[in-house]
Write a protein that binds this DNA or RNA. Structure first.
Lengths: 195, 195
DNA sequence: TTGAAGTGATGACTTAAATCAAGAAAATAT
DNA sequence: ATATTTTCTTGATTTAAGTCATCACTTCAA
């Protein structure tokens, strides 16, 4: 179990550029709870308030919505060292429109909004990390907005260059849904790309 | 000129839920510079590092890219009480891929990255505001990602419900570009929506 | 006050991607 | 090992939205 936290502490220190004191580590260890989810198990279901935020130690998950026609749309694919939550629901305590489901056996360290507020106040490295993640989120959001004007090929090429490991790790129909394409279209794009 | 700052101070206090001291206000007044841009004037040109962040006191602007075919794509439309910058370029000091242009006569209060760092350290209300804006950005980014799967009609309906004043304020071809649609398509959608 | 530029509407046509359908291949379970 | 989902491919067809072309209407500037 300790090793889970070591990876977590390393992550905080690396992102923030600051060291955690022993007291900091004790506080985090006391409040972050280790949790395992089996493949296909839900971390969050549509309509529920997302009470937890999870740090992924091992495994992967998808965040998706289901439209009126019953079609699923993946908004996010999450892997190790990423945070797992619906930020809107988590921050505002409103019912979520999203589902979050484990795609592989998932090991996370989870905590609540109130606890996070405490870490932000008491742990400088945690607060610095939070600010940097927000910055990165803002930048990523800016980039994603550009994708509106991209063709199917361009979206795929962008994924290949930004997240090449996703292609190995996730089935093609998940990738297609993440890119907002039908799986048939993605299959054809890959065929053409080989030439 | 003072009135510009009064609106700015009100904004910080409202968003942060905290009061600014006289010292805080003096520090902000000393470092934020009032600037006017005429209609069509550029706040940022593609290839330049975005050295400034501007708080819009009056007027509006668009953030856009130009693709290989010479077509412009609007990523953001900004109005009063919004921040004007390319966050990626501003935070990371990298050359920007965006252009930011005044759509109407524009009055802003602007400052540099280094100065912002100072405000974050010295002014609690400013730091609280920054965190809340980051939260809102993260939430907005999550929402925007959903738009990938939306049809032309759905994107338009979303705009109507979220930013109805944009429809009055900006020409239809700008709105179309912002939604990632051709102006002909938007014209047809509006015609159908009337029925 | 009259061009000129910018904006918006509409019709005809084209194209990118979705949908529908059927098999093949791979992964998982019994 | 074999059945049974699940995933992936390929072809035929449909559909949503883009492109091209033209005309009307408005602003704005000389």
């Amino acid at each position: 179990m300790m090793s889970n936290f070591e990876a977590f502490f390393d992550y905080i220190q690396k992102i923030s550029g600051q060291l955690l004191s022993e007291d900091d580590k004790d506080l985090l260890t006391a409040h972050f709870k280790a949790r395992k989810l089996r493949k296909r198990q839900y971390f969050l279901q549509e309509g529920d308030v997302c009470k937890y935020i999870g740090f992924i130690v091992k495994g992967s998950a998808r965040t998706f919505t289901v439209d009126e026609k019953g079609h699923e749309h993946i908004l996010k694919l999450s892997v190790e060292n990423w945070w797992l939550t619906d930020f809107e629901s988590f921050y505002l305590l409103t019912p979520s429109r999203f589902n979050i489901e484990a795609l592989e056996e998932l090991e996370i360290l989870q905590s609540t909004n109130a606890e996070i507020e405490e870490f932000l106040k008491k742990i400088p490295a945690f607060s610095a990390m939070s600010n940097i993640i927000s910055q990165n989120n803002t930048i990523a959001a800016q980039k994603r907005m550009q994708a509106i004007n991209y063709s199917a090929e361009e979206r795929y090429e962008e994924l290949v260059s930004n997240y090449p490991h996703f292609l190995q790790r996730f089935p093609q129909n998940m990738i297609a849904s993440y890119l907002g394409l039908s799986s048939e279209t993605l299959s054809r794009i890959k065929k053409n790309a080989l030439k």
